[in-house]
Design a protein around this nucleic acid. Structure first.
Lengths: 203, 203
DNA sequence: ATTGTAAGTAAGTAGTTACTTACATATATT
DNA sequence: AATATATGTAAGTAACTACTTACTTACAAT
Protein backbone atom coordinates (compact mmCIF):
# COMPACT_ATOMS: atom_id res chain seq x y z
CA UNK A 1 0.00 0.00 0.00
CA UNK A 2 1.38 3.39 -1.05
CA UNK A 3 2.04 6.12 1.51
CA UNK A 4 -0.64 8.37 0.07
CA UNK A 5 -3.34 5.75 0.55
CA UNK A 6 -2.12 4.84 3.99
CA UNK A 7 -2.34 8.50 4.96
CA UNK A 8 -5.80 8.94 3.46
CA UNK A 9 -7.14 5.93 5.34
CA UNK A 10 -5.52 6.97 8.57
CA UNK A 11 -6.80 10.49 8.16
CA UNK A 12 -10.39 9.33 7.74
CA UNK A 13 -10.06 7.23 10.84
CA UNK A 14 -8.56 9.98 12.98
CA UNK A 15 -10.79 12.74 11.61
CA UNK A 16 -13.85 10.60 12.29
CA UNK A 17 -12.86 9.71 15.81
CA UNK A 18 -11.29 12.99 16.97
CA UNK A 19 -12.95 15.50 14.68
CA UNK A 20 -10.97 17.75 12.35
CA UNK A 21 -9.80 20.12 15.08
CA UNK A 22 -9.04 17.33 17.49
CA UNK A 23 -7.08 15.34 14.95
CA UNK A 24 -3.35 16.07 14.95
CA UNK A 25 -1.11 15.44 12.00
CA UNK A 26 1.18 13.57 14.34
CA UNK A 27 -1.54 11.06 15.24
CA UNK A 28 -2.48 10.63 11.60
CA UNK A 29 1.15 9.94 10.77
CA UNK A 30 1.42 7.38 13.57
CA UNK A 31 -1.80 5.71 12.45
CA UNK A 32 -0.53 5.59 8.87
CA UNK A 33 2.94 4.47 9.87
CA UNK A 34 4.66 7.26 7.97
CA UNK A 35 6.76 10.23 9.03
CA UNK A 36 4.74 13.34 9.79
CA UNK A 37 6.61 15.31 7.16
CA UNK A 38 5.40 12.92 4.48
CA UNK A 39 1.86 14.14 5.08
CA UNK A 40 2.86 17.69 4.23
CA UNK A 41 4.93 16.63 1.25
CA UNK A 42 1.96 14.78 -0.23
CA UNK A 43 -0.92 16.95 0.91
CA UNK A 44 0.59 20.37 1.72
CA UNK A 45 -1.80 21.11 4.61
CA UNK A 46 -4.17 19.45 7.04
CA UNK A 47 -7.00 21.39 5.44
CA UNK A 48 -6.13 19.99 2.05
CA UNK A 49 -5.78 16.50 3.46
CA UNK A 50 -9.39 16.69 4.60
CA UNK A 51 -10.39 17.78 1.13
CA UNK A 52 -8.63 14.82 -0.44
CA UNK A 53 -10.15 12.43 2.08
CA UNK A 54 -13.57 13.70 1.10
CA UNK A 55 -12.87 13.42 -2.61
CA UNK A 56 -11.61 9.87 -2.26
CA UNK A 57 -14.50 8.67 -0.15
CA UNK A 58 -17.11 10.56 -2.05
CA UNK A 59 -16.22 8.44 -5.03
CA UNK A 60 -16.42 5.35 -2.87
CA UNK A 61 -19.78 6.40 -1.51
CA UNK A 62 -21.24 6.97 -4.91
CA UNK A 63 -20.72 3.31 -5.63
CA UNK A 64 -22.84 2.62 -2.58
CA UNK A 65 -25.75 3.60 -4.66
CA UNK A 66 -26.10 -0.13 -5.30
CA UNK A 67 -26.91 -0.75 -1.66
CA UNK A 68 -30.21 1.03 -2.08
CA UNK A 69 -31.19 -0.75 -5.23
CA UNK A 70 -33.92 -3.11 -4.15
CA UNK A 71 -33.88 -6.66 -5.37
CA UNK A 72 -37.60 -6.98 -5.68
CA UNK A 73 -39.22 -10.09 -4.29
CA UNK A 74 -42.84 -9.31 -5.24
CA UNK A 75 -43.52 -9.03 -1.51
CA UNK A 76 -42.93 -5.46 -0.32
CA UNK A 77 -42.58 -6.41 3.34
CA UNK A 78 -39.84 -8.87 2.42
CA UNK A 79 -38.19 -6.33 0.12
CA UNK A 80 -37.96 -3.77 2.89
CA UNK A 81 -36.79 -6.28 5.45
CA UNK A 82 -34.01 -7.49 3.16
CA UNK A 83 -33.02 -3.95 2.30
CA UNK A 84 -32.98 -3.04 5.96
CA UNK A 85 -30.76 -5.96 6.85
CA UNK A 86 -28.43 -5.12 3.99
CA UNK A 87 -28.12 -1.50 5.15
CA UNK A 88 -27.69 -2.42 8.79
CA UNK A 89 -25.04 -4.97 7.91
CA UNK A 90 -23.14 -2.49 5.80
CA UNK A 91 -23.21 0.18 8.50
CA UNK A 92 -21.41 -2.07 10.94
CA UNK A 93 -19.23 -4.16 8.68
CA UNK A 94 -16.04 -4.70 10.64
CA UNK A 95 -14.01 -5.92 7.70
CA UNK A 96 -13.65 -2.46 6.25
CA UNK A 97 -13.43 -1.07 9.76
CA UNK A 98 -16.87 0.35 9.19
CA UNK A 99 -15.79 2.99 6.74
CA UNK A 100 -19.35 4.05 6.14
CA UNK A 101 -20.01 4.67 9.78
CA UNK A 102 -16.75 6.59 10.13
CA UNK A 103 -17.73 8.69 7.16
CA UNK A 104 -21.23 9.22 8.47
CA UNK A 105 -19.89 10.48 11.77
CA UNK A 106 -17.46 12.79 10.04
CA UNK A 107 -20.07 14.16 7.68
CA UNK A 108 -22.50 14.85 10.50
CA UNK A 109 -19.89 16.40 12.75
CA UNK A 110 -17.91 18.46 10.28
CA UNK A 111 -20.93 19.21 8.13
CA UNK A 112 -22.14 21.68 10.71
CA UNK A 113 -18.91 23.63 10.35
CA UNK A 114 -17.91 23.19 6.74
CA UNK A 115 -20.31 23.84 3.89
CA UNK A 116 -18.32 21.59 1.54
CA UNK A 117 -18.86 18.73 3.96
CA UNK A 118 -22.54 19.54 4.45
CA UNK A 119 -22.90 19.55 0.69
CA UNK A 120 -21.57 16.00 0.50
CA UNK A 121 -23.89 14.78 3.23
CA UNK A 122 -26.76 16.39 1.39
CA UNK A 123 -25.96 14.77 -1.91
CA UNK A 124 -25.43 11.37 -0.33
CA UNK A 125 -28.81 11.54 1.34
CA UNK A 126 -30.45 12.81 -1.78
CA UNK A 127 -29.10 9.81 -3.62
CA UNK A 128 -30.38 7.37 -1.01
CA UNK A 129 -33.77 9.01 -0.86
CA UNK A 130 -34.11 9.13 -4.63
CA UNK A 131 -33.40 5.42 -4.94
CA UNK A 132 -35.94 4.51 -2.30
CA UNK A 133 -38.50 7.00 -3.56
CA UNK A 134 -38.41 5.43 -6.97
CA UNK A 135 -39.26 2.08 -5.45
CA UNK A 136 -42.18 3.49 -3.46
CA UNK A 137 -43.38 5.39 -6.50
CA UNK A 138 -43.52 2.21 -8.55
CA UNK A 139 -45.33 0.27 -5.85
CA UNK A 140 -47.73 3.15 -5.48
CA UNK A 141 -48.58 2.96 -9.17
CA UNK A 142 -48.94 -0.79 -8.82
CA UNK A 143 -51.71 0.05 -6.39
CA UNK A 144 -50.04 -1.77 -3.56
CA UNK A 145 -49.55 1.16 -1.21
CA UNK A 146 -51.80 3.47 0.71
CA UNK A 147 -51.82 7.13 -0.20
CA UNK A 148 -48.32 7.99 0.99
CA UNK A 149 -45.73 10.51 -0.14
CA UNK A 150 -42.79 8.54 -1.57
CA UNK A 151 -40.11 11.03 -0.58
CA UNK A 152 -41.33 11.46 2.99
CA UNK A 153 -41.68 7.72 3.26
CA UNK A 154 -38.13 7.19 2.05
CA UNK A 155 -36.81 9.72 4.56
CA UNK A 156 -38.68 8.02 7.39
CA UNK A 157 -37.28 4.63 6.41
CA UNK A 158 -33.71 5.86 6.17
CA UNK A 159 -33.94 7.84 9.42
CA UNK A 160 -34.25 4.68 11.44
CA UNK A 161 -31.05 3.19 10.09
CA UNK A 162 -28.93 6.30 10.23
CA UNK A 163 -30.06 7.13 13.71
CA UNK A 164 -29.58 3.69 15.19
CA UNK A 165 -26.20 3.48 13.52
CA UNK A 166 -25.14 6.82 14.98
CA UNK A 167 -26.55 5.85 18.35
CA UNK A 168 -24.71 2.56 18.32
CA UNK A 169 -21.48 4.48 17.80
CA UNK A 170 -22.03 6.32 21.06
CA UNK A 171 -23.86 4.04 23.45
CA UNK A 172 -22.95 0.74 21.87
CA UNK A 173 -25.66 -1.84 21.92
CA UNK A 174 -27.29 -0.84 25.16
CA UNK A 175 -30.72 -0.22 23.67
CA UNK A 176 -30.76 -2.85 21.02
CA UNK A 177 -30.41 -6.55 21.24
CA UNK A 178 -29.90 -8.59 18.11
CA UNK A 179 -29.67 -6.18 15.20
CA UNK A 180 -31.44 -8.37 12.67
CA UNK A 181 -34.30 -8.90 15.03
CA UNK A 182 -34.60 -5.16 15.61
CA UNK A 183 -34.55 -4.55 11.88
CA UNK A 184 -37.28 -7.14 11.37
CA UNK A 185 -39.44 -5.45 13.95
CA UNK A 186 -38.96 -2.06 12.41
CA UNK A 187 -39.56 -3.10 8.83
CA UNK A 188 -42.60 -5.06 9.93
CA UNK A 189 -44.14 -1.92 11.41
CA UNK A 190 -43.05 0.12 8.44
CA UNK A 191 -44.43 -2.26 5.85
CA UNK A 192 -47.75 -2.46 7.64
CA UNK A 193 -47.73 1.31 7.77
CA UNK A 194 -47.57 1.82 4.05
CA UNK A 195 -49.26 -1.26 2.57
CA UNK A 196 -52.91 -1.36 1.69
CA UNK A 197 -54.40 -3.58 4.35
CA UNK A 198 -54.43 -7.27 3.56
CA UNK A 199 -57.99 -7.45 4.87
CA UNK A 200 -59.16 -5.02 2.23
CA UNK A 201 -57.99 -7.34 -0.48
CA UNK A 202 -59.55 -10.38 1.15
CA UNK A 203 -62.87 -8.72 1.96
CA UNK B 1 -27.96 37.32 35.01
CA UNK B 2 -24.98 36.20 37.07
CA UNK B 3 -21.59 35.63 35.45
CA UNK B 4 -21.66 31.93 36.25
CA UNK B 5 -24.91 31.41 34.37
CA UNK B 6 -23.81 33.57 31.47
CA UNK B 7 -20.69 31.45 31.18
CA UNK B 8 -22.59 28.16 31.40
CA UNK B 9 -25.00 29.22 28.66
CA UNK B 10 -22.23 30.52 26.45
CA UNK B 11 -20.21 27.37 27.02
CA UNK B 12 -23.07 25.11 25.92
CA UNK B 13 -23.48 27.20 22.81
CA UNK B 14 -19.81 27.19 21.89
CA UNK B 15 -19.22 23.55 22.85
CA UNK B 16 -22.20 22.52 20.75
CA UNK B 17 -21.18 24.47 17.70
CA UNK B 18 -17.39 24.03 17.81
CA UNK B 19 -17.03 20.82 19.77
CA UNK B 20 -15.08 20.63 23.02
CA UNK B 21 -11.65 20.70 21.37
CA UNK B 22 -12.63 23.39 18.92
CA UNK B 23 -14.13 25.61 21.58
CA UNK B 24 -11.70 28.14 23.04
CA UNK B 25 -12.10 29.72 26.42
CA UNK B 26 -11.62 33.07 24.73
CA UNK B 27 -14.66 32.55 22.50
CA UNK B 28 -16.75 31.37 25.43
CA UNK B 29 -15.76 34.50 27.35
CA UNK B 30 -16.69 36.72 24.40
CA UNK B 31 -20.01 34.95 23.99
CA UNK B 32 -20.72 35.34 27.70
CA UNK B 33 -19.50 38.93 27.84
CA UNK B 34 -17.10 38.27 30.67
CA UNK B 35 -13.33 38.38 30.99
CA UNK B 36 -11.62 35.14 30.11
CA UNK B 37 -10.01 34.95 33.52
CA UNK B 38 -13.46 34.90 35.15
CA UNK B 39 -14.05 31.50 33.59
CA UNK B 40 -11.04 30.07 35.36
CA UNK B 41 -11.86 31.77 38.63
CA UNK B 42 -15.34 30.21 38.60
CA UNK B 43 -14.67 26.89 36.92
CA UNK B 44 -10.91 26.25 37.34
CA UNK B 45 -10.52 24.47 34.00
CA UNK B 46 -12.16 24.00 30.63
CA UNK B 47 -12.63 20.34 31.44
CA UNK B 48 -14.48 21.21 34.62
CA UNK B 49 -16.59 23.79 32.79
CA UNK B 50 -17.84 21.04 30.51
CA UNK B 51 -18.68 18.96 33.55
CA UNK B 52 -20.71 21.79 35.06
CA UNK B 53 -22.47 22.45 31.77
CA UNK B 54 -23.52 18.82 31.69
CA UNK B 55 -24.70 18.84 35.30
CA UNK B 56 -26.76 21.96 34.79
CA UNK B 57 -28.40 20.77 31.60
CA UNK B 58 -28.89 17.25 32.77
CA UNK B 59 -31.16 18.62 35.43
CA UNK B 60 -32.95 20.65 32.79
CA UNK B 61 -33.30 17.64 30.53
CA UNK B 62 -34.78 15.51 33.24
CA UNK B 63 -37.69 17.90 33.37
CA UNK B 64 -38.20 17.18 29.71
CA UNK B 65 -39.58 13.91 30.76
CA UNK B 66 -42.95 15.70 30.55
CA UNK B 67 -42.56 16.10 26.80
CA UNK B 68 -42.95 12.37 26.36
CA UNK B 69 -45.96 12.06 28.56
CA UNK B 70 -48.80 11.45 26.16
CA UNK B 71 -52.05 13.30 26.63
CA UNK B 72 -54.26 10.48 25.54
CA UNK B 73 -57.02 11.27 23.10
CA UNK B 74 -58.54 7.80 22.84
CA UNK B 75 -57.34 7.78 19.22
CA UNK B 76 -53.81 6.41 19.00
CA UNK B 77 -53.08 7.94 15.59
CA UNK B 78 -53.99 11.37 16.96
CA UNK B 79 -51.99 10.75 20.12
CA UNK B 80 -48.86 9.97 18.15
CA UNK B 81 -49.35 12.85 15.76
CA UNK B 82 -49.73 15.32 18.61
CA UNK B 83 -46.75 13.88 20.41
CA UNK B 84 -44.69 14.07 17.22
CA UNK B 85 -45.60 17.69 16.68
CA UNK B 86 -44.78 18.50 20.28
CA UNK B 87 -41.36 16.87 20.00
CA UNK B 88 -40.58 18.44 16.63
CA UNK B 89 -41.58 21.85 17.92
CA UNK B 90 -39.43 21.50 20.98
CA UNK B 91 -36.40 20.41 18.99
CA UNK B 92 -36.41 23.61 16.98
CA UNK B 93 -37.78 26.12 19.45
CA UNK B 94 -35.93 29.33 18.70
CA UNK B 95 -36.91 31.10 21.90
CA UNK B 96 -34.49 29.08 23.96
CA UNK B 97 -32.06 29.10 21.08
CA UNK B 98 -32.89 25.46 20.63
CA UNK B 99 -31.13 24.34 23.77
CA UNK B 100 -32.25 20.79 23.24
CA UNK B 101 -30.81 20.57 19.78
CA UNK B 102 -27.56 22.13 20.97
CA UNK B 103 -27.43 19.57 23.75
CA UNK B 104 -28.27 16.74 21.39
CA UNK B 105 -25.43 17.69 19.08
CA UNK B 106 -23.02 17.96 21.94
CA UNK B 107 -24.07 14.64 23.46
CA UNK B 108 -23.71 12.84 20.13
CA UNK B 109 -20.39 14.44 19.29
CA UNK B 110 -18.67 14.35 22.64
CA UNK B 111 -20.33 11.12 23.69
CA UNK B 112 -18.05 9.22 21.36
CA UNK B 113 -15.02 10.58 23.19
CA UNK B 114 -16.15 10.94 26.78
CA UNK B 115 -17.82 8.11 28.65
CA UNK B 116 -19.46 10.56 31.10
CA UNK B 117 -21.16 12.24 28.15
CA UNK B 118 -22.17 8.95 26.56
CA UNK B 119 -23.66 7.94 29.87
CA UNK B 120 -25.88 11.02 29.86
CA UNK B 121 -27.03 10.40 26.29
CA UNK B 122 -27.83 6.84 27.27
CA UNK B 123 -29.88 7.80 30.27
CA UNK B 124 -31.75 10.51 28.38
CA UNK B 125 -32.70 8.04 25.69
CA UNK B 126 -33.62 5.42 28.20
CA UNK B 127 -35.99 7.87 29.79
CA UNK B 128 -37.62 8.74 26.48
CA UNK B 129 -37.96 5.15 25.46
CA UNK B 130 -39.37 4.10 28.82
CA UNK B 131 -42.06 6.76 28.66
CA UNK B 132 -43.10 5.77 25.16
CA UNK B 133 -42.85 2.07 25.88
CA UNK B 134 -45.28 2.40 28.74
CA UNK B 135 -47.81 3.96 26.42
CA UNK B 136 -47.45 1.21 23.84
CA UNK B 137 -47.61 -1.41 26.53
CA UNK B 138 -50.92 -0.06 27.77
CA UNK B 139 -52.41 0.15 24.29
CA UNK B 140 -51.19 -3.36 23.64
CA UNK B 141 -53.07 -4.61 26.68
CA UNK B 142 -56.09 -2.65 25.53
CA UNK B 143 -55.95 -4.88 22.47
CA UNK B 144 -55.56 -1.97 20.13
CA UNK B 145 -52.16 -2.82 18.71
CA UNK B 146 -50.75 -5.60 16.57
CA UNK B 147 -48.20 -7.90 18.10
CA UNK B 148 -45.34 -5.42 18.41
CA UNK B 149 -42.47 -5.05 20.82
CA UNK B 150 -43.08 -1.86 22.82
CA UNK B 151 -39.42 -0.98 23.32
CA UNK B 152 -38.41 -1.53 19.69
CA UNK B 153 -41.46 0.43 18.63
CA UNK B 154 -40.55 3.31 20.90
CA UNK B 155 -37.00 3.36 19.55
CA UNK B 156 -38.26 3.40 15.98
CA UNK B 157 -40.60 6.28 16.72
CA UNK B 158 -37.95 8.36 18.45
CA UNK B 159 -35.35 7.65 15.77
CA UNK B 160 -37.28 9.62 13.20
CA UNK B 161 -37.34 12.76 15.30
CA UNK B 162 -33.78 12.66 16.51
CA UNK B 163 -32.45 11.92 13.07
CA UNK B 164 -34.41 14.60 11.24
CA UNK B 165 -33.49 17.08 13.93
CA UNK B 166 -29.79 16.24 13.58
CA UNK B 167 -30.07 16.32 9.82
CA UNK B 168 -31.77 19.68 9.89
CA UNK B 169 -28.84 21.04 11.85
CA UNK B 170 -26.51 20.13 9.02
CA UNK B 171 -28.36 20.46 5.76
CA UNK B 172 -31.10 22.84 6.89
CA UNK B 173 -34.46 22.17 5.41
CA UNK B 174 -33.33 20.91 2.05
CA UNK B 175 -35.09 17.55 2.32
CA UNK B 176 -38.11 18.55 4.24
CA UNK B 177 -40.80 21.02 3.48
CA UNK B 178 -43.26 22.03 6.15
CA UNK B 179 -42.28 20.26 9.35
CA UNK B 180 -45.78 19.66 10.65
CA UNK B 181 -46.80 18.13 7.36
CA UNK B 182 -43.78 15.84 7.42
CA UNK B 183 -44.58 14.81 10.98
CA UNK B 184 -48.18 14.07 9.99
CA UNK B 185 -47.00 11.85 7.16
CA UNK B 186 -44.61 9.98 9.38
CA UNK B 187 -47.01 9.44 12.25
CA UNK B 188 -49.68 8.37 9.79
CA UNK B 189 -47.44 5.63 8.49
CA UNK B 190 -46.33 4.73 11.98
CA UNK B 191 -49.82 4.53 13.41
CA UNK B 192 -50.99 2.35 10.55
CA UNK B 193 -47.94 0.22 11.16
CA UNK B 194 -48.78 -0.65 14.72
CA UNK B 195 -52.58 -0.49 14.88
CA UNK B 196 -54.78 -3.48 14.35
CA UNK B 197 -56.30 -2.87 10.95
CA UNK B 198 -59.49 -0.83 10.92
CA UNK B 199 -60.98 -3.28 8.41
CA UNK B 200 -60.63 -6.12 10.88
CA UNK B 201 -62.85 -4.31 13.31
CA UNK B 202 -65.39 -3.41 10.66
CA UNK B 203 -65.51 -6.79 8.97
C1' DA C 1 28.35 4.11 -11.58
C1' DT C 2 25.19 7.96 -11.56
C1' DT C 3 21.10 9.99 -10.96
C1' DG C 4 16.27 10.57 -9.50
C1' DT C 5 12.62 9.59 -6.41
C1' DA C 6 10.20 8.41 -2.28
C1' DA C 7 10.72 8.25 2.22
C1' DG C 8 12.87 9.07 7.02
C1' DT C 9 15.34 11.89 10.90
C1' DA C 10 15.96 15.87 13.35
C1' DA C 11 15.65 20.40 14.56
C1' DG C 12 13.28 24.55 14.46
C1' DT C 13 9.56 28.49 13.82
C1' DA C 14 5.53 30.98 14.59
C1' DG C 15 1.16 31.00 16.30
C1' DT C 16 -2.35 29.43 19.50
C1' DT C 17 -4.29 27.82 23.81
C1' DA C 18 -5.20 26.68 28.58
C1' DC C 19 -4.11 28.61 32.54
C1' DT C 20 -1.54 31.93 36.04
C1' DT C 21 -0.20 36.01 38.45
C1' DA C 22 -0.44 40.70 39.84
C1' DC C 23 -2.82 44.68 40.12
C1' DA C 24 -6.95 47.83 39.54
C1' DT C 25 -11.91 49.05 40.05
C1' DA C 26 -16.61 48.79 41.21
C1' DT C 27 -20.22 47.43 44.21
C1' DA C 28 -22.21 45.82 48.33
C1' DT C 29 -21.93 44.93 53.39
C1' DT C 30 -20.71 46.21 57.83
C1' DA D 1 -15.70 55.16 56.14
C1' DA D 2 -13.72 50.63 55.91
C1' DT D 3 -13.68 46.19 54.20
C1' DA D 4 -14.76 42.26 51.45
C1' DT D 5 -16.23 40.36 47.21
C1' DA D 6 -16.81 40.12 42.32
C1' DT D 7 -15.05 41.36 38.17
C1' DG D 8 -11.84 43.57 34.79
C1' DT D 9 -7.04 44.57 32.59
C1' DA D 10 -2.67 43.21 31.31
C1' DA D 11 1.13 40.52 30.91
C1' DG D 12 3.16 36.22 30.87
C1' DT D 13 4.20 30.91 30.83
C1' DA D 14 4.48 26.33 29.19
C1' DA D 15 2.80 23.17 26.12
C1' DC D 16 1.19 22.00 21.79
C1' DT D 17 0.42 22.20 16.77
C1' DA D 18 0.73 23.06 11.84
C1' DC D 19 4.21 23.50 8.97
C1' DT D 20 9.31 24.24 7.28
C1' DT D 21 14.09 23.39 6.36
C1' DA D 22 18.11 20.73 5.85
C1' DC D 23 20.11 16.64 5.59
C1' DT D 24 20.13 11.41 5.09
C1' DT D 25 18.91 6.73 3.49
C1' DA D 26 17.01 3.20 0.34
C1' DC D 27 16.18 1.82 -3.93
C1' DA D 28 15.11 1.69 -8.84
C1' DA D 29 16.19 3.28 -13.64
C1' DT D 30 19.43 4.73 -16.81
Amino acid sequence: MKAEDKILDAALKVFASEGFTGATTRRIAEEANVAEVTIFRKFQSKENLLKEVLIKNRAEISELDILFRIESDTDIATDLCNLGKKIAKDLRDKKKESKHRMLMFMLFEEGRRRPEVAEILTSVFQMYISRLSEYFEVQLQNGKLRNINPRSTALAFISYFVHTSLLRGVVDDCFMGDINEEVERFTDIFAHGILKTADTKVG
